[in-house]
Structures are given as structure tokens and as C-alpha cells.
């Protein structure tokens, strides 16, 4: 892994740029301290945007950008922010970054912007962002805060993509629809790999309409949490 290599190269410095602490900040939120499955934050958008994989990936990138840079800027300003207005200041930073993301996405990929519609704007209210600012960036140095932001964004994005993969395959029979790498897997026409209209084994198959509703994301998320809690020793006796 790239992180490991950097780790060994920069070990001579007094405070390594990417040492053990940073690695923990980056890796922890992906599994042991995942913002969605362990802290149960940001579930709202995880249910709403995960019908298709491609928009979920874009959403994940947007959230990584916002958590990383809001953490960075808040941490840089942490000693100058007046305590009485700190929430407002944090919100201004988040809102500015989210608006930047929204404007750029609208210019770069308009169809996906249309698809995600309000959910890009609603990153402002995503508890993960505000939560990291309050819990981490206000008390730590800029670089570590930045890494922490990336880690939490990645943890969020990973769950988003896993849920979306299940929902898209079983709900639409495709994968990455809308992107240049679109794959049509199962469906009743010649365009799909498995054509249910002619295939003797899959004649019974139908797309599951429940999967396109947000209810299905709740089920998948629940199963994910279950699997994670029963496999990860650090989480087994959490209650």
C-alpha cells in the first residue's frame, strides 16, 4: 500500500508527515469507527442517493471533499474562532464548500447533478461533517484534521457504494448506469448479459422493485451493520 511506503520513508523526521497516528485516522473510520455503520450518522443521504452506483460515487467524492477541507479550514482557524459563534463559523465554512461542489458538479456533469438534485446541497446538514468539526478539527492540527476528514469521507463513501451495488443489481439489473462504464447484467432484452426473455434458467427472474425504494437501503444497511458487528472483534461487546 502507498501509505506504508510513505511511512517508512519519512520515519526519520521528528513528526512524520504520515505516521502511525495519521494512518489510524485514515483507516479507523473505514471499519472500526465507521460514521454510518458504527456511529450511525449520515444515514439519511445514504438511504436516498444509493439507487444507482454512479451517482453514489459522485456523492462520496463530494462528501470526501467537504469533510476534508472543512476540517482543514476549521482546524487552521481553531484558535481564532470566537467560542460564542463557532457553530455559525463552522456552518459558513461547510456551506461555502458545499456550494463550490454543487457549482462545479453542475458545470462538469449536468445529468448527475440533476439526479442528485437536493442531496448535494443537503451535505450541509450531514451530521458527519459537523460532527468531525466539533469532535476533531477544533482540537487538532490542520494536517491531521485533513486526514481525519478524508478518512471519514471514505468510510461514508464505502458504505454508500456497497449499498448502491446491491440496490442497482437487484433493482435495475445494471451496474454503473449513466457512466461511460455502464454494465447491463440481467433483464428482458438483448442488451443484457443474461437475457431473461430467452435464457432457460432465468425466465422467472424479475427486478425487485423494493430495491429502488429507500426502504431497501435500510435493510441492506441493517444487514451490513449486523455482519460488521459479528465479525469485527472490537465491536462485538460494544453495548
Amino acid at each position: 500500500m502507498a501509505e506504508v511506503m510513505q511511512d517508512t520513508q519519512e520515519v526519520k523526521e521528528k513528526e512524520p508527515l504520515f505516521g502511525k497516528a495519521e494512518r489510524k485516522l485514515l483507516i479507523d473510520p473505514i471499519n472500526d469507527n465507521n460514521p454510518i455503520t458504527v456511529q450511525v450518522l449520515g444515514v439519511c443521504s445514504a438511504l436516498a442517493v444509493t439507487t444507482l452506483v454512479y451517482p453514489s460515487i459522485i456523492m462520496a467524492i463530494a462528501v470526501i471533499f467537504v469533510t476534508a477541507f472543512s476540517n482543514l479550514f476549521t482546524s487552521m482557524l481553531r484558535n481564532t474562532i470566537p467560542k460564542s459563534v463557532r457553530m455559525i463559523v463552522q456552518l459558513v465554512i461547510i456551506a461555502t464548500l458545499v456550494t463550490i461542489v454543487e457549482q462545479v458538479l453542475k458545470a462538469v456533469n449536468f445529468p448527475v447533478y440533476k439526479q442528485l438534485s437536493v442531496f448535494i446541497g443537503l451535505i450541509i446538514t450531514n451530521c458527519i461533517v459537523m460532527g468531525r468539526l466539533e469532535a476533531f478539527a477544533m482540537a487538532n492540527k490542520p494536517w491531521r484534521s485533513f486526514v481525519d476528514g478524508i478518512g471519514n469521507g471514505l468510510g461514508y463513501g464505502l458504505i454508500l457504494v456497497i449499498v448502491a451495488v446491491f440496490r442497482e443489481i437487484f433493482g435495475k439489473g445494471s451496474l454503473l448506469a449513466g457512466s461511460p462504464m455502464e454494465m447491463k447484467i440481467i433483464g428482458a432484452s438483448d442488451l443484457y448479459w443474461i437475457n431473461t426473455a430467452t435464457n432457460p434458467w432465468f425466465g422467472w427472474y424479475m427486478n425487485n422493485n423494493l430495491m429502488v425504494l429507500s426502504v431497501a437501503a435500510m435493510f441492506i444497511l441493517g444487514i451490513l451493520i449486523w455482519v460488521q458487528r459479528s465479525r469485527n472483534p472490537k465491536l462485538i461487546d460494544i453495548s
Binding site: P82, V89, T96, T99, A107
Partner: peptide
Amino acid sequence: YIIRFVLIMTTLAALILASLNTFL
């Protein structure tokens, strides 16, 4: 100090967003 901080902060944010919007 608080008033000055908030004013500078919001003006900066507004400037960034306004120029981005004009640009895009």
C-alpha cells in the same frame, strides 16, 4: 472582535462564491 471576525469571514465566503458563480 466577534463582529469583525464574522464580517470578514462572511465577506470572504461571499466573494469566493460570487466569483465562482460568475466564472461557471
